[in-house]
Design a binder for these strands. Structure first.
Lengths: 348, 348
DNA sequence: TTGATATTTTGGAACGATCCAAATACTGAA
DNA sequence: TTCAGTATTTGGATCGTTCCAAAATATCAA
């Protein structure tokens, strides 16, 4: 009290009870008499008491810290920002608070922040792993029995739970959609070839082509960093080639918008002269001109589900790794020229 | 050791020293002999020791928790996501870790999370206050001597430090720019009228008009929620009126993009038929078509500065509230028709 | 060898909560 | 009044660290 911080002992003294009783009140125990409870609560309010969770955690089992860690690879990407918001939402409702760290795809940063979070006593971790993350990076956590949920990107070989969107089906249906509209030369834009997601999506793309009766042409795959600027460059490469595609599916929406830019730079109008399908369904997808046809994954929903999965494991006490695949769906808007475009017009 | 968690005592036993020595090693004290230090470190590695910051904080002064709280009003807005990234950057470098909570403009959420963060022992707080925040909401914190930095939005009357962008100058120079290009009827789009920022920006707009020799016409101010969708509606209202503006300054870039949409819906091309200036300079501003002329505020830089300010106060031990205004600058791109537009073409 | 001095190491006693076993206060029936 | 039975309350001991004063050890000049 004198030194600034009010403790249970100060409350006990002021209320004329023992610290144990105050502790009981704090925990909402039914053992304490209604009269004492209200008196103690009143004193707490009067003295401006703040509960010291750190002290409590020391005595209790480590899993009760009410802190979870969230590590994302790129918070400036609105997909991950939405994801973080989704996590935050359910985590807050459960009375938890989250450490949020951004790694900017740096593995060193990732190991650093995870170590730091451990020291601070997180009771679980949701991580969207930095590029190149290996099972070894999470080894210490899982062998310490800490629940870990990997989202968006898999960590091959790691014994952690995972929540991934259905990449294969997503690209499959994107290709199917374009094929149905009459396109026969369909390109694939964006993504780093050395990632698992890229491979999953590429497989969906190939299978989609096969299902439509087309062959797979490596020359129609334009990998690049999944950013708007790189997407613009990728489509420039595609249109410079001899046998041009008439439409394309993109690794994500950012790339798709880059494709818009790249087309316009060549005086081609997206959705009229070229059909585009994105992936993610970021907020801008619905309001852009033309509105982007895309594969919706609902990042906020994914965040919520990831947090629920994690909380379930924390409460269960034991972390049984499980893999969840979240469904995606094709959202048809204007960028494939429905009602706007003559399909296949520049073909052959 | 047996129960799972490795403590300093386990280390001490295994290394054949006392726990005090281990503690000294942990703190990198120069008092301990080089030989013992390496041996202790080796043992720590072998046993997989994780430092328990919670326990340490208990003994030490509360200001050393190495945790700071970050509360933002809307993380789905990329401006705030960037801000959070900037904060994260310097906070991580300083060996801190951040609690990040999103309030979605809910005052209740805000008080909840701040209370929760206090219980967890944060040593400082960066907050971008939810709409309608009052000094009272931060009273408990400041009277407890906790450093608080309010960013982006002011909290009138609160004794907290603040870091605001130069709203007045920003809008002043936006108007000046349009006037220089020959525009005489300049509208103002977006923003909530009951916020301090809106008033600051509006004042900059008025002063800019006055400096250019124009009068202030209330009918040219189209306030609305600062979102893309509402921006589109606002410009629709503007163009429906009799004496149309030929250009406009916007509350932020989101509104500006909404104005793009609204214009296109009326078959008007932004940057050709109508001049637009945004505010914020979000990432998309440079890559949109046309590229958006805007007032750059560098949210990530603001985040960094806010974090630095906070860390300075934490280290100083005493929280002397100070107000910092960060400079803004006009970034001229294509949305005002430089090289593209006949200024004032639809005037009169 | 012996102090004196400098270098290292070390047992408790905190920090602020929880938990447990045991004490105390109530209740109503005998 | 006493006693069993229930309802409340309560002192330690404890969690894993830091801090302090004091002890042990090493170093060295006389």
């Amino acid at each position: 009290m004198a030194n600034g911080r009010v403790t249970v002992i100060d409350i006990a003294k002021a209320a004329g009870v023992s610290k144990s009783t105050v502790s009981l009140v704090l925990q909402g125990s039914p053992l304490v008499n209604e009269g004492t409870r209200t008196k103690v609560n009143a004193v707490m309010r009067d003295l401006g008491y703040v509960y010291n969770r750190g002290a409590a955690n020391l005595r209790q089992s480590s899993a009760k810290s009410k802190i979870i860690g969230v590590v994302v690879n790129d918070l400036t990407n609105s997909f991950f920002a939405e994801l973080a918001v989704g996590i935050d939402l359910v985590v807050q409702d459960a009375g938890f608070v989250q450490f949020l760290a951004n790694t900017s795809e740096s593995l060193d940063r990732q190991t650093e922040v995870i170590a730091s979070m451990r020291e601070h006593g997180i009771s679980g971790l949701v991580v969207s792993p930095a590029r190149g993350s290996r099972a070894i990076d999470f080894k210490a956590l899982v062998s310490a029995g800490m629940p870990v949920v990997a989202v968006v990107r898999p960590v091959p070989g790691a014994k952690v739970s995972s929540l991934m969107s259905d990449n294969h089906t997503g690209l499959f249906s994107a290709v199917e959609h374009l094929a149905k509209l009459g396109h026969t030369r369909i390109a694939f834009f964006g993504g780093f070839e050395d990632t698992a997601i890229f491979q999953e999506r590429l497989a969906g793309y190939r299978d989609g082509l096969a299902a439509a009766g087309f062959g797979y042409d490596e020359g129609l795959v334009f990998a690049c960093a999944p950013s708007r600027a790189e997407g613009a460059k990728a489509v420039a490469r595609a249109m410079a080639a001899g046998d041009r595609p008439t439409g394309g599916v993109c690794f994500n929406d950012a790339v798709a918008f880059g494709v818009y830019d790249g087309l316009r730079a060549r005086r081609l109008e997206p959705g009229v002269d070229f059909a585009i399908v994105g992936f993610d369904d970021v907020i801008e997808a619905g309001t852009s001109v033309p509105a982007l046809t895309t594969i919706a994954v609902d990042p906020q929903g994914m965040g919520r589900r990831a947090a629920q999965l994690l909380l379930k494991q924390i409460n269960a006490g034991k972390a049984e790794a499980e893999a969840v695949v979240t469904p995606v769906r094709l959202v048809v808007r204007e960028s494939c020229g429905v009602n706007r475009m003559k399909p296949g017009r520049r073909t052959a």
